[in-house]
Design a protein around this nucleic acid. Structure first.
Length: 556
RNA sequence: UGGGGGAUCGUCUAGUGGUAGGACGACGGGUUCUGGCCCCGUUAGCGAGGGUUCGAGUCCUUCUCCCCCAGCCA
């Protein structure tokens, strides 16, 4: 499966406007080449999906290319585990980087040469200041910085020192290579930024070959340039790094892509920072990066989201420069829209209530036809067994029903989907006064679920045959946080204690025996569910992906 | 209080001097063997004040509010 440009195009956005102009002016010879540049230091989340869809989607739209490039310049935080998960997630989302899987670490030698060139031009110097001293010299937002005492070393000395930094002659953190720009710049990023640091960290790809590593601000523009990127799309916080991006490329006289910034995605009831997501995992608030409550791509996948739903969501939210927080209801809408068309229907009773149909012949079993998906009649039907003892949903019976109640209640007649009309005749309670069993009668003339007398039966219930049902565990998920913006204050205090509810005694229609982990279904009148990898042959586990919309406003 | 950005229905987003539109949400109705889907309708917005213009969300101006930046993180 591959995302393609025929997918419903939303309205344009300001980035495409810029590209249109560039195409018209021939700025890059009619070429569009983007890149998705994750740092392999965590799992991808829905916010990254926005960037992935933007970068790959833009390339697709203009018949260009999009590279996958790992921005791996900080070995202390990165790991192959993350590289693998990122590749899996991008692929799953439906995008193909073909043979263009790149790493900033592939360019370490070239980056080093660029640094040498800068030094030779007198535009970079080796600085012996400590981290704390550099901070002091940098000044503040309102006060200019002061030049480092090492700022005017000779080119020869800088060359010598930098080569010896690479050779490992100096301890970690003892020296840095800094760009020589302007310590009085109102833009703090231009106050002689560090471009190389000494760190004897083991790199997941280059091993121990290097003990100096380039900084993002230096590696990124050069990596973009090497890959002949045309439009380097990144998030808003890099806006005031752009002068630096441009400075490096100009000083190096290198091919010069243009950086364009857009607003990252925020979602209501969700935290999106890697740090917070990591904390949820590390502290056991969730079961892992792929916990179905997580906004990670792997979590959404396990929850039962589809790539199509996510892509469509990313298309609909648009791309702009204003900070915004998208209502999670829009994501859920896109999900239901997709699942409604693709999910086979099934009947499952989550909280079973036993029903005995007194006038139905003992031992008789009838197999009824049920639609696989009413949205796609061409898919045909499946068979479901009906018998004297069935289970219905506890919520579908009320002893004292509110106004407008269509479901079961004493003396009320309802339709069992695809089967018969039944009327509630008798209620059995336990010592605690709880309803444990219903006795009903059925109307043989309603076979298949309707009668010729035009009788109006508003309520239609899902059900399973007691003798044929498959026991299962169902996991109901709710929002992970109780407030729209969990980032206000301590996000851990906003965790929803009821975000996971386990239903151990659910019963499924027998056809679900064939289901495999990852398969998704619509459980009639309940929602969309997908089989979890925790399932075993004798105990299937289903995750509720998202509930159905419910417009019943039962009130007394 | 330096610099860089940003403000359009509740939310997201179009609009590039000529009737402020769409989507989600909410509300109401139709349809229905899923209180789903689908269909119809209602709701509701240009941050504020000046100015230019026949005409301003759009141009000018003053102001207000919000976000980002002082990692040897990205």
């Amino acid at each position: 499966m591959q995302a393609n440009s025929s997918e419903k195009q939303g309205q344009g956005n300001f980035i495409h406007d810029i590209i249109d102009q560039d195409m018209a002016s021939g700025k890059y010879g009619g070429r569009v080449h983007t890149r998705f540049p994750p740092e392999p230091n965590g799992y991808l989340h829905i916010g990254h999906a926005k960037s992935i869809c933007l970068n790959f989607g833009t390339a697709l739209k203009y018949g260009g290319k999009c590279n996958l490039r790992f921005d791996d310049t900080n070995p202390t935080k990165e790991d192959v585990e993350y590289v693998e998960s990122i590749k899996e997630d991008v692929r799953w989302l439906g995008f193909d980087w073909e043979d263009r899987e790149f790493y900033a670490s592939d360019y370490y030698e070239q980056l080093y040469e660029c640094a040498i060139k800068l030094i030779e031009k007198g535009k970079a110097y080796v600085c012996d200041l400590s981290a704390e001293e550099i901070r002091e010299y940098r000044g503040t937002l309102t006060e200019p910085g002061r030049p480092s005492p090492y700022r005017n070393r000779s080119v020869e000395e800088n060359l010598d020192l930098f080569r010896r930094m690479r050779a490992g002659e100096f301890p970690d953190g003892s020296r840095t290579l800094r760009a020589k720009i302007d310590m009085a710049s109102p833009n703090i990023n231009m106050r002689d930024p560090v471009i190389y640091r000494i760190s004897r960290a083991h790199h997941h790809r280059t091993g121990d070959k290097w003990c100096i590593y380039p900084m993002y601000d230096f590696a990124h523009p050069i990596s973009d340039s090497i890959e002949r990127i045309t439009h380097s799309i990144c998030t808003l916080e890099f806006e005031d790094h752009r002068p630096l991006y441009d400075w490096f490329l100009d000083e190096l006289g290198a091919y010069h892509p243009q950086q364009i910034e857009f607003a990252r995605l925020n979602l209501t009831y969700t935290v999106m920072s890697k740090r917070k997501l990591l904390e949820l995992v590390k502290n056991g608030y969730v079961s892992g990066w792929d916990d179905p409550r997580m906004p990670t791509i792997s979590g959404l996948r396990r929850r039962g989201y589809t790539p199509e739903a996510i892509r469509n969501f990313c298309e609909r939210i648009g791309v702009a420069k204003a900070n915004s927080t998208v209502d999670i209801a829009l994501l859920e809408h896109c999900l239901r829209e997709d699942l409604n068309l693709r999910a086979p229907r099934a009947m499952a009773v989550l909280r079973p209530l036993k029903v005995v149909i007194d006038n139905y012949p003992e031992g008789q079993v009838e197999w009824f036809d049920a639609e696989i998906n009413p949205e796609k009649p061409e898919l045909g039907t499946r068979k479901i067994p009906f018998a004297k003892v069935i289970y219905v949903e506890q919520d579908d019976y009320s002893e004292d029903p509110p106004k407008g109640w269509f479901r079961l209640a004493p003396g009320k007649e309802v339709r069992l989907k695809y089967a018969y009309y039944i009327t509630c005749r008798e209620v059995v309670k336990n010592d605690a006064g709880q309803v444990v069993e219903l006795h009903c009668t059925y109307d043989p003339a309603s076979r298949g679920g309707w009668t010729e007398d035009g009788r109006k039966v508003r309520g239609t219930l899902h059900w399973v045959s007691a003798a044929h049902a498959i026991p299962a565990e169902v996991r109901l998920y709710d929002k992970l946080f109780t407030v729209e913006n969990p980032d206000e204050g301590d996000f851990r205090a906003n965790l929803n204690p009821d975000s996971l509810q386990i239903l151990p005694d659910a019963l499924l229609e027998p056809g679900l025996k064939e289901a495999k982990p990852g398969d998704c279904f619509q459980f009639l009148r309940q929602g969309y569910f997908c089989m979890d990898p925790d399932s075993t042959p004798d105990r299937p586990v289903f995750n509720r992906t998202v509930g159905l919309k419910d417009s019943f406003k039962g009130g007394k």
